[in-house]
Simulated scan of single mutants.
Amino acid sequence: MLTTERETAGEQGPVMRNSEPPAHARARRKSEAAAVRTHALVRLDRITRTDDFTFRRKRLDRHHKADLAGHIRGTGKPLDPVLLWRDASAEDGDAAPLVLLDGAHRIAAYKTANWSKPVPAIVLTCDRRAALLAALGHNARHVLPLSQMERMDAAWRLVRETVEPPYTRAEIVGLAAVSKRTVNYMRRRWAEMRAADEEPCGEWFRDRSGRVNDYEMALDMTDAQRHREIEALATDIRDVLDRRKRPEKAILVDSYAVNEAIVTALGDPRFKQIAEWFVGGRDNLDEWVADVNEWDDADDGDDEDAPF
Rank of each mutant, 00 (worst) to 15 (best):
V119E: 07
L241H: 08
A306M: 09
T112P: 03
A154V: 00
F271T: 09
W156E: 00
A130W: 00
E229M: 06
L84V: 01
S89L: 13
M217N: 03
E161A: 08
G70N: 13
W190P: 00
A134E: 00
K272Y: 03
E164T: 05
L136V: 00
L266S: 05
M16L: 09
D286K: 06
L133D: 00
M152F: 09
L219C: 02
T235I: 01
A224F: 10
Q148L: 05
R86D: 02
M217Y: 08
E229P: 02
H105G: 01
T3M: 09
L84A: 02
F308T: 06
V82G: 09
K117C: 09
L219P: 01
L136T: 00
D102Y: 04
V212Y: 03
D299Q: 05
E20K: 15
D242E: 02
D254Q: 13
L84E: 01
D87W: 14
A121H: 01
Y167T: 00
L60H: 04
A88S: 06
E7M: 08
D302A: 11
D223L: 10
R238M: 06
P307C: 03
W288A: 05
A27M: 03
V143N: 07
F278V: 06
G10C: 15
I274E: 12
P120R: 07
K117R: 08
D220A: 15
